[in-house]
Amino acid sequence: MELTRPTTASPERARARRRFDADGMAVAAFVLGLVGLLVMNIVLGPVAVVLAVLALRRGTARRARALLGLGLGVADLVVLAVVMSTSGGSAWSIA
Rank of each mutant, 00 (worst) to 15 (best):
53 V>D: 02
50 V>G: 13
29 A>Y: 00
94 I>A: 10
71 G>E: 04
25 M>V: 04
95 A>N: 10
8 T>R: 14
87 S>C: 05
69 G>W: 00
65 R>E: 05
2 E>W: 08
13 R>S: 15
48 A>M: 05
57 R>V: 07
74 V>T: 06
14 A>C: 07
30 F>T: 05
19 R>L: 11
5 R>Y: 15
18 R>T: 05
60 T>I: 11
78 V>E: 02
50 V>D: 15
4 T>M: 08
87 S>W: 06
35 V>T: 06
60 T>Y: 03
60 T>P: 01
52 A>C: 06
64 A>F: 13
41 N>E: 11
46 P>H: 01
74 V>G: 00
6 P>W: 11
48 A>G: 01
29 A>V: 04
62 R>V: 02
48 A>H: 00
90 S>P: 02
84 M>C: 12
95 A>D: 13
17 R>A: 07
24 G>T: 02
47 V>F: 12
85 S>P: 03
68 L>D: 03
42 I>Q: 13
23 D>Q: 03
81 A>P: 01
40 M>C: 05
52 A>I: 01
48 A>W: 00
81 A>D: 04
37 L>G: 12
77 L>V: 12
52 A>T: 04
24 G>W: 00
30 F>L: 08
22 A>L: 02
35 V>L: 07
68 L>T: 06
81 A>R: 03
26 A>T: 06
70 L>P: 00
49 V>P: 01
42 I>P: 11
95 A>V: 14
72 L>T: 03
2 E>K: 13
75 A>L: 12
22 A>F: 01
31 V>E: 09
10 S>F: 09
20 F>M: 08
32 L>N: 02
74 V>E: 01
94 I>D: 05
43 V>T: 04
71 G>Y: 02
26 A>D: 10
84 M>N: 12
78 V>G: 03
39 V>D: 06
83 V>E: 06
11 P>L: 08
80 L>S: 01
3 L>S: 13
46 P>T: 15
84 M>K: 14
92 W>K: 04
3 L>I: 10
85 S>T: 14
31 V>Q: 07
94 I>P: 02
33 G>R: 00
81 A>T: 07
75 A>T: 11
77 L>Y: 14
32 L>D: 03
74 V>F: 04
10 S>D: 13
16 A>M: 13
51 L>S: 01
9 A>P: 13
17 R>Q: 09
38 L>S: 14
13 R>C: 09
25 M>L: 10
12 E>C: 09
57 R>D: 10
6 P>N: 09
42 I>K: 12
2 E>R: 14
72 L>K: 02
84 M>D: 13
25 M>N: 05
67 L>T: 15
69 G>F: 00
66 A>T: 08
93 S>R: 15
84 M>A: 10
18 R>L: 09
20 F>H: 11
44 L>W: 04
75 A>F: 11
